[in-house]
Amino acid sequence: MTTGDPGAGAELPPLVAAQHRAMPFTRLTDCGMDPADARRLLADTGAGLSWQDAAEILADTQLERAHLAETSGHTVTARQAHRFAAAALMFAQMAFQTDTVGKRELYARHTAATAALAPEVERVEIPYRDGVLGGWLCLPAGPPRATVIVWGGLSGWGAAYLPVADAYTARGLACLLAEGPGQGESRLWHGLYVDEHVTDGFARFVDLVEADPRLGGNIGVQGISFGGLFAAHLAAADPRVGAVVVNGAPAVPTVPEFRTAREQMAAVVGTDDPARVTEVMDALRFDPDKHRITCPLLLLHGGRDPLARYEDQEPFLRAADPDTSLLRIWPDGEHTLYNHAAERDALTGDWFTDHLTTNS
């Protein structure tokens, strides 16, 4: 993957090179970073500044910009700066694979920056087990025609997908950006992790949509990266799901070979016991002979995705009705199609509109 920064051709230390591969320029901008900040982050970390420090400095600059704009009455500029700061802080916390104090502090700052976008972005909280599931609700200008619930995977969650919500609200759809079990504040502050019953946690967001009188119409779900596995399971298990998008997910999850990836998955499950992590992953295998998706399915795949091959995603298609399922492949697409973000979001926004509303 190309990073887009001027120093991309230089040889980098192994940790920095891994961070640049996991968080290339296309991913940074896809999840809402200012393009200038994204280039600065890659350049500064390539020059030796730690990832978390470089990203936090950029966030601090955007927060100062937001403050100055607010005091001058420039609310549109202030909102833009808060969004750029929230995105920078989302990526800052990704420097930590495990749930350290530093990761929690950075994610708390990300949440505060996102909360400053109210009332355009509304914080929601759902009691679940002994904790709270969090999320962000984005509403269109008029009454919602339907609602789409969106969640991420192992490292990017919730407000990381504000640009997706923009595409949906522009089409008259409400969008709920979920932080499910193993994700965001639900995990970092409330100890809710991925287990064999993770689908029950994500179903609570469907409950919330049904209970909110502002949110009429049908409900769609979209899972990005590893979260696509959870979306497929929920669509197979819950008849309230009217349409589902799976983007870059493995149908058969396995414990990664590389240490940092193993640490990340262990954090999602909430244990250092590799046997327990394997047990959970085995329980989450999506078997098309056992799990049938009866609602319309849109499967997205990037031909250059190093994390989810087509063969890894194909079982989701076999679980769906061929008359109501659609496969879209970008031959040069990166993981979750970072490098085709605008076209991807237009496609999914239109597809959800066609399948969840009576008038497209």
Rank of each mutant, 00 (worst) to 15 (best):
G217M: 07
D53K: 11
H110D: 04
T98R: 15
E56V: 05
V221Y: 06
A160K: 03
V148L: 01
Q222F: 05
H82L: 11
A10C: 10
P256N: 04
L68E: 04
D273M: 12
L173F: 03
A95Y: 14
I126L: 14
L117S: 03
P14L: 14
A178N: 13
L106H: 11
A159E: 05
V245T: 09
L317F: 02
G270S: 02
M1N: 05
G217L: 07
C138F: 00
R79I: 03
A283D: 13
A146Y: 04
T353F: 00
A86K: 08
A66W: 09
A55C: 08
T357H: 09
I219T: 06
G182F: 09
L12A: 09
G184Y: 09
G223P: 14
G153I: 10
T26A: 15
P331I: 11
E122R: 12
L356V: 02
D289F: 01
D212Q: 10
F286T: 11
E343T: 04
Q62F: 01
W151E: 06
F316A: 11
Q264M: 15
V269Q: 04
P250F: 03
D305R: 02
R145M: 06
A38K: 06
N359V: 11
R39F: 00
T77L: 15
G223T: 14
W151V: 09
L327I: 11
A87Q: 10
P296H: 08
H291Q: 14
V280W: 12
M94E: 12
A235N: 02
Q183R: 06
V221F: 06
E64A: 13
A231K: 14
H20S: 07
D207I: 01
A54F: 07
D354K: 07
D44K: 08
C295I: 09
D350S: 12
Y161A: 00
A118L: 05
E185S: 13
E263C: 12
W151M: 04
T324H: 11
G349A: 02
W51I: 04
L173C: 08
V209Q: 01
V148I: 03
T348I: 13
E125S: 13
W330H: 02
A160W: 00
E70C: 08
Q93T: 08
A69C: 11
W51Q: 07
A59L: 09
L15R: 12
E122Q: 14
V277H: 08
R40I: 06
S325V: 01
G201E: 11
L326C: 13
P274K: 02
L117K: 04
V245I: 12
D34P: 07
G182M: 03
P181Q: 05
N339Q: 02
E311Y: 06
Q264N: 15
D238H: 02
S72F: 06
A112R: 15
E196A: 15
A308E: 10
T29E: 01
D282K: 13
L229E: 04
D312V: 07
G191P: 13
W151H: 13
V255G: 01
C175G: 00
P213K: 13
G333R: 01
A66P: 03
D37I: 11
G302C: 04
G303H: 11
Q93P: 05
D287R: 07
G134T: 15
G172P: 01
R21N: 04
